[in-house]
Amino acid sequence: MNKLILGRYFPGDSWIHRLDPRAKLVAAIYFIFVLFLANNWQTYVFLWLFTTAVILLSNISIRTYLRGVRPLIWLILFTVFLQVLFTAGGEIYVDLGPITISKFGLINGFYIFCRFIMIIFISTVVTLTTKPIDLTDGMNALLRPLRKLKVPVDELSLMLSISLRFIPNLLDETQKVMDAQRARGTEFGEGSLVKQMKTLVPIFLPLFVSSLNRAEDMANVMEVRGYQSDVKRSTFRQLSWQQKDTISLLVMAMLTVALLVLRSNGFGH
């Protein structure tokens, strides 16, 4: 529970920290798409250099990012494994009927592995360097055009900011309840699967109860303070687009050009 890095904010004052959340969001989402342009080792090396540069600029130790990968590592390895087994082509090393381990399979598996890790790293950069509240402001601003289509953008971003706001509380509370049940003799991560699942009941029930209570308190407080959902509101925190934000998007454009030049056309060499 304590190892969960994804979605946590690390305070700091790096170049990346000071970027506008809109720029960071656009750049990160764009990066995920641009990643699919890579198709040979030159492009992957280039993307790794870019990712490393961004991580270094964020001024947060690489160990934090690696910890962010850890909860997802089995999912990634499973996908890579399937890719390795079911891609044919090139030199074949192991042949078991429909299942083969081939040169192309291994290369493809490795590329997919890189792709996953880079996606996680880059999205972790965004969440680690942006306050959750700024992130929702950014999202709200980016989704604003959808308002014309009657999408309740403001409500959605309010919901998002409230849930993000309570993640740390929920984690602290989980820790507290776990400690309390441990003190009453519960042993976590022991025994059969069924037994382990049973030990979760004494944790989740109190957490549900307290979350529901808190939600009700919150709703009451909002109502008392006159919150209404269907009014046009101004914002307290103003986002300001600066030169460095434009620069960061230009960097993304340059990255695209570089990838287009470096990538090999057609399949195989």
């Binding site: 509370e173 309840v177 400690d179 309390a180 003190a183 004494p202 109190p206």
Partner: peptide, 11 residues
């Protein structure tokens, strides 16, 4: 051990 606000551990 009785924690602070121990009623939050009732389940």
């Amino acid at each position: 051990m009785v924690f602070q606000f121990p009623e939050s551990q009732l389940f």
